[in-house]
């Protein structure tokens, strides 16, 4: 086995002699992993929000009151019979997890609580807000069943689903993921090609040493080890920088930005960066080892 200290000395010399190439591999790896990280984080953001909202998402079936102008109501409040018919129907549906009934008074209280800091609260009286059934589904994406069934039922003013609002948001996030991951794949291809070029250049710079190593009977592994170690060092440095940048980006956007305003816990944080970091590092490790071995096999024959 080659002595570790000798190997490190060779690696240091190699990096010193080929420093511009080393820097370019670091930068390209960094950018590609940063983009990949952004894509993965966007996806985690979507998952986090889905989880957060799906716990809360309800389909609201607003009933008619005297103020309701929908064709289903025509200013007629829903009757007791209509109310219990809807309730019976809802509880019989297997898709429904839970049903709450919100009275006019409760709706008014909730409204007052939500808008306590806004002058709008003063303009609303009890009885103005309709009573409603709040339906929690076991699978929130199946809200359409409720809409279809109750949209035109007697006594129902409107069926409203919160998922619809969110789905547009999720579409945007998905596009961000697709774009960043596609860019990351392109950049990873660049990184692999650049590593190949870097190794070929390093092999050319070190052709004298390689010639002597072959002559005195150094094994293939000994000849290849310094190149492989150099590439692993520079690409892992690139990954490290990318992870640092991702952490900083998440910190900047969420921890000190949105979370301060939105007061929600439905956002990704540093722990998400740490969660994807080992996977990205492992991916780069694999890419580097494969690229290096293929290149070395082609250009460094005994």
């Amino acid at each position: 086995m080659i002595q570790p200290r000798f190997l490190l000395g060779e690696v240091a010399t190699g990096l010193r002699r080929n420093v511009s190439m080393a820097i370019s591999v670091v930068l390209v790896t960094m950018v590609s992993i940063f983009l990949l990280g952004l894509g993965l984080l966007a996806q985690r953001q979507a998952d986090t929000m889905k989880g957060y909202w799906y716990d809360r998402i309800q389909v609201s079936i607003y009933l008619c009151n005297e103020y309701a102008e929908q064709p289903n109501c025509r200013g007629q409040a829903a009757t007791e019979a209509q109310r219990s018919a809807i309730r019976t129907q809802l509880t019989a549906m297997p898709e429904v997890k839970e049903v709450f009934f919100e009275t006019e008074q409760e709706a008014f209280e909730r409204f007052k609580e939500q808008f306590r800091n806004s002058p709008i609260a003063g303009n609303v009286e009890a009885g103005f807000l309709p009573e409603s059934f709040r339906v929690q589904l076991s699978d929130p994406s199946k809200y359409k069943i409720i809409t279809d069934q109750f949209q035109t039922a007697p006594g129902v003013a409107q069926v409203q689903d919160q998922e619809k609002v969110l789905s547009r948001f999720f579409t945007i996030i998905n596009w961000i993921t697709v774009l960043t991951v596609a860019l990351a794949v392109l950049m990873a291809a660049c990184a692999a090609l650049l590593m190949g070029t870097a190794i070929r250049q390093a092999a050319f710079i070190r052709r004298r040493e390689i010639g002597i190593m072959r002559l005195v009977g150094a094994s293939n592994w000994t000849i290849r080890m310094p190149f492989l170690t150099e590439m692993l060092l520079v690409s892992l440095l690139g990954v490290g920088l990318a992870i640092g940048l991702l952490w900083y980006a998440v910190h900047l956007i969420f921890n000190s930005g949105i979370n301060q305003i939105a007061q929600l816990q439905a956002f990704i944080g540093a722990h998400d960066v740490w969660a994807i970091a080992p996977w990205m590092a492992a991916g780069v490790l694999l890419l580097t080892v494969l690229t290096s071995l293929v290149t070395l096999r082609r250009y460094l024959r005994v």
Partner: peptide, 11 residues
């Protein structure tokens, strides 16, 4: 020494 290092001889 290089010739010995690259065939893994001990220091």
């Amino acid at each position: 020494a290089y010739a010995l290092h690259v065939i893994g001889k001990p220091s």
